[in-house]
């Protein structure tokens, strides 16, 4: 089911939650709405579900306009951040609930409903839990029940609001891979909201980055990560170092412009070479799993910058704390300094 969001706006009092957002989601696509809190991503999801009404703009599922349609007419499955399971019902009753309350002419037989609920519980790997109550399950299990419940009504669109936000890190990583597989099996057009850039990049076909109610960029994970359209996207999708351009490789550098560089694009060398010309001192070294994180303080700078090296590079350089090195960077992107988000990780 194709979703067309056209110029959707929403205000809460004097707060603008969404400002003329346009987004088209292809049938069968898994799209992440990514942004910091207050960026409007959950509001957009709730408008797609019909739980909120937009102040302006239009929304279409396929060829039918659903801007003013009731949630029940839209055929959406919704997974909530805090599961929202019905606490007085068993797991199986929760999953079957959406089917048992359908009008008589659309309702499957009792046996079919039961079979469907059990089948869905198998799909979410919870067969055997049918007669438990929600409070007897772990967070990850509850969220899978919530997903099965959302899928039970055979929705045209699956909407997930920070589905893994309340889970611990390990379960989160497992569940998001599992969600991706599930999406590949079912092929339902899905939209999920997250503030976790790693999650968005790993799971989705396309990422829509929102900030202050505006869409900053829409693209594949590779596009938004490697070719950010704005300083905000660049900064939000991973750590960045800020270099004030000082005519290192281009003549006539503009003092009002800055270059954003990801830590793994920072080059470190023992001796100055054409690429690495900024003298610096190694302040700290941390082995963080597959990479080595260096904190280096360029001469004359007030704050250190972060560089990520592979173990091979690290071994070759044979660095230790206090060593003098030369740094440079590749794949920098330059922006107006005034466009820079207020919080940056490292800057010189």
């Amino acid at each position: 089911m194709r979703i067309d969001i056209r110029s959707i706006s929403k205000r809460f009092g004097s707060f603008t939650a969404l400002d003329r957002v346009d987004l088209s989601i292809a049938s069968g696509e898994l799209v992440a709405l990514l942004g910091p809190s207050g960026s409007g991503k959950t509001t957009l999801l709730r408008i797609i579900a019909g739980l909120e009404q937009a102040d302006g703009g239009s929304l279409a599922f396929g060829d039918s306009d659903v801007t003013a349609a009731d949630p029940r007419a839209r055929g959406v499955g919704f997974v909530f951040q805090h599961y929202a399971l019905f606490r007085h019902m068993t797991v199986a009753e929760n999953v079957a609930f959406g089917l048992t309350v359908k009008p008589r002419d659309q309702r499957p037989s009792r046996a079919d409903i039961r079979a469907r609920a059990l089948e869905l519980l198998r799909l979410v790997q919870l067969d055997g839990f049918a007669h438990r109550f929600p409070h007897q399950l772990s967070g990850g299990q509850r969220q899978r029940v919530a997903l099965a419940r959302a899928l039970a009504v055979e929705p045209r669109v699956l909407l997930l609001d920070e589905p893994f936000g309340a889970l611990d890190a390990k379960v989160r990583v497992e569940l998001r891979r599992w969600l991706r597989r599930l999406h590949d099996e079912t092929g339902i057009t899905s939209v999920f909201v997250t503030h976790d850039q790693e999650e968005a990049l790993e799971v989705s076909d396309r990422v829509a980055v929102l900030n202050h109610g505006r869409l900053e960029q829409v693209g594949t994970p590779e596009q938004v990560y490697r070719h950010p359209a704005s300083a905000f996207v660049h900064q939000f999708l991973g750590q960045v170092n800020v270099f004030h351009e000082r005519g290192q490789d281009q003549a006539g550098a503009d003092p009002a412009r800055v270059a954003l560089v990801r830590p793994h694009d920072v080059l470190v060398a023992r001796a100055a070479d054409p690429l690495c010309q900024i003298p610096a001192v190694v302040e700290a070294i941390a082995i963080a799993g597959p990479q080595v994180r260096l904190s280096v303080l360029p001469a004359g700078a007030k704050a250190a910058i972060e560089a990520h090296l592979t173990h091979d590079q690290y071994d070759q350089l044979a660095l230790s704390r206090g060593d003098a090195v030369f740094i440079g960077y590749s794949r920098a992107k330059s922006y107006q300094a005034s466009d820079l988000p207020t919080t940056v990780d490292y800057q010189i």
């Binding site: 709730r46 579900a49 019909g50 739980l51 009731d70 949630p71 029940r72 007419a73 959406v76 499955g77 919704f78 909530f80 951040q81 805090h82 929202a84 399971l85 019905f86 606490r87 609930f97 959406g98 309350v101 359908k102 419940r149 959302a150 009504v153």
Partner: peptide, 13 residues
Amino acid sequence: VGEEVDALRTMGL
């Protein structure tokens, strides 16, 4: 507060 009412609404209730 637990979004259960929203869950009901998305199921058409």
